[in-house]
Design a protein around this nucleic acid. Structure first.
Lengths: 344, 344
DNA sequence: GTGAAAGCGCTAACAA
DNA sequence: TTGTTAGCGCTTTCAC
């Protein structure tokens, strides 16, 4: 490759020191208009462009943040990432994205004392395979914001909606529609299933709040929150001697899978079975039927996460870890309300 | 931040030169077993970890590749990205992802002589707003692989399926089902719509091959390939005095939008109107009805793109730009074949 | 097989 | 306001 034009070359041509050129290039400090112009001209004449790698080393920062999610092709994450990238760009940061496939080792590599540490100035992380303990054993110098699962240990920020309240609200909506046998799909009663457990709790709370008892056998566990999980769980439910008349799904993908199963059997939604989802992904507003769902404010989550992370990066004494509650709301669509006469 | 442990510190403790430590750390060259061990111990004792930033500068490479797509939340891209990340990881590369929102300026910034040039060793790029000309005015030193749209100018590789053939095949499938009035949704008759135009060509070729003439007024243009575009275009078609009995959609999202419109009007798929899509995204196999589609081999595309890019990065004399044809196949589902008796 | 030392190109403390 | 210069921490040529 051709020899690169360096700061020194520019300095020489412009007849100034490299320090001055650096100042001009970075828009720093006080530089005489005359000098600035002279430098500018030299820059253009030589086609100089700063070497990011050198700058990174000298500054000890990379100008990049990493966003780590379990699966990129989960619509919830890809929709969220979109907003994260935009927010980071505004803050002058590039975004390095990685997916972990939920592999604990891979996840740990990101937040532990690793050789990649300096590659990013901070990490926004949506863990899946790591339990709370593993989150605590991390590089303490790494600015970190956690999304979704888990809760803050006081040393990082955590951004997410109130799962318990949201799930309770979803379940109450089904109860309000007069449903009697409500199933839940997505429970994960083990260390890494915190988020799922919070949803189950909300589900039970809603029942208890009305003096009802949730039926154990209608709470179905799934390893993940994908379409296939929803389809399988729903098939199981439909095979019961007395199938449910409503289902609360822990994600919209699960709901879409469940809907597929229901429709395949020739049953009607919501007449025979009402379905509600979680996440408000775009698919849910175009499917047949469209899906009633809990809609977390993704824009708020993304913006807040980036904001807090940049703050952490900028501070030399790390701010206290916050528990940040994103707004959410219930969006009622066909899967519980039925087709409205003039739907289009 | 605490003072970092450097190579020199390790060398001092181990009583060797920094050169030797570097050799050990990188698994280079010939180092005596004894020396290696001594160094290894020092590394552990001090908790040394190499500084990626310094290494990058010294080597003049970043160990990162960028993947640039128009929209991250388009399932086709997020599914593809997933495979790209995996393939890159195997090759020892990190993936920096960016989305351009189809903005030509933003796109140009990535392939032009920019200050971010050194941040990635190569780029896999799926352009949307740039025409062929703009692609040619790029940093000639940048290893580049283009996905999807456009064709190679001989200086970069292009990976994609044969759009004309695939579209022809899709259309012929509809003709084979006895459809008479076939519409096409997604044409883009302007400079940046090459891919769309190739699909339109295939659509027309299929008709001509059977001695038929495609009807101009059934070829609908859309600005993008999203659900909303499909829904709107379909509504328009349904308002025609004589609506089509089949639609070829230029993406699965368009198909899903179209399906939504059709179902909303109480029409049946495929009895009244058959629908075929393009891309084979997961949604299409869980929707009601499931979507017949053209399925590009995404794994092949991702693997090949990464492979070629790494090859380009490694070569000092750039290899010739190749036009690489990914395999594709037609997947027949309910939107053209109807519900099979024992569907589940 | 190992050591010495010269970069890589930029930033920023210190001086002038 | 501008110049001088010492790093940033690693790689790598060249000599031993």
């Amino acid at each position: 490759m051709r020899r690169e034009v360096t700061l020194r070359d520019v300095a020489e041509l412009a007849g100034v020191s490299s320090r001055t050129v650096s100042n001009v290039v970075n828009g720093y400090a006080n530089v005489t208009e005359r000098t600035r112009e002279r430098v500018q001209r030299a820059v253009e004449e030589l086609g100089y462009r700063p070497n990011v790698l050198a700058r990174n080393l000298a500054q000890g920062r990379s100008g990049q943040i990493a966003v780590v999610v379990p699966y990129l092709d989960t619509p919830y994450f890809s929709e969220l990432l979109q907003s994260v990238i935009r927010a980071a760009r505004v803050g002058g940061y590039n975004v390095l994205i990685d997916q972990t496939d939920g592999d604990p080792e891979h996840e740990r590599a990101f937040i532990a004392d690793g050789s990649r540490r300096l590659l990013f100035d901070g990490v926004i992380f949506s863990p899946l395979g790591l339990d709370q303990q593993a989150l605590t054993d991390r590089d303490p110098t790494l600015p970190l914001v956690i999304l979704g699962e888990r809760s803050s240990d006081g040393f990082f920020d955590h951004v997410g909606i109130d799962d318990v309240a949201a799930s309770r609200q979803a379940t109450e909506h089904l109860l309000d529609m007069g449903r009697q046998r409500i199933a839940a799909i997505g429970d994960q009663p083990y260390a890494t299933g915190e988020a799922a457990q919070r949803r189950t709790r909300g589900f039970c709370d809603a029942h208890k709040g009305r003096g009802l008892t949730p039926q154990e056998d209608l709470i179905i566990q799934t390893p993940r929150f994908n379409r296939i999980d929803g389809a399988q769980a729903m098939n199981h439910l439909l095979d019961l001697p007395e199938p449910p008349d409503a289902v609360f799904c822990y994600s919209d993908l699960v709901a879409l899978g469940a809907i597929r199963s229901i429709v395949s059997r020739g049953l009607r939604i919501p007449e025979d079975i009402a379905v509600i989802g979680y996440d408000d992904i775009e698919d849910g507003s175009y499917s047949n039927p469209t899906v009633t769902t809990i809609s977390p404010d993704k824009e708020w989550i993304a913006t807040t996460a980036v904001e807090r992370l940049l703050l952490r990066i900028a501070s030399d004494t790390p701010p206290p870890g916050l528990e940040l509650r994103a707004p959410h709301r219930l969006i009622v669509r066909e899967s519980t309300a039925g087709r409205t006469p003039d739907a289009r």
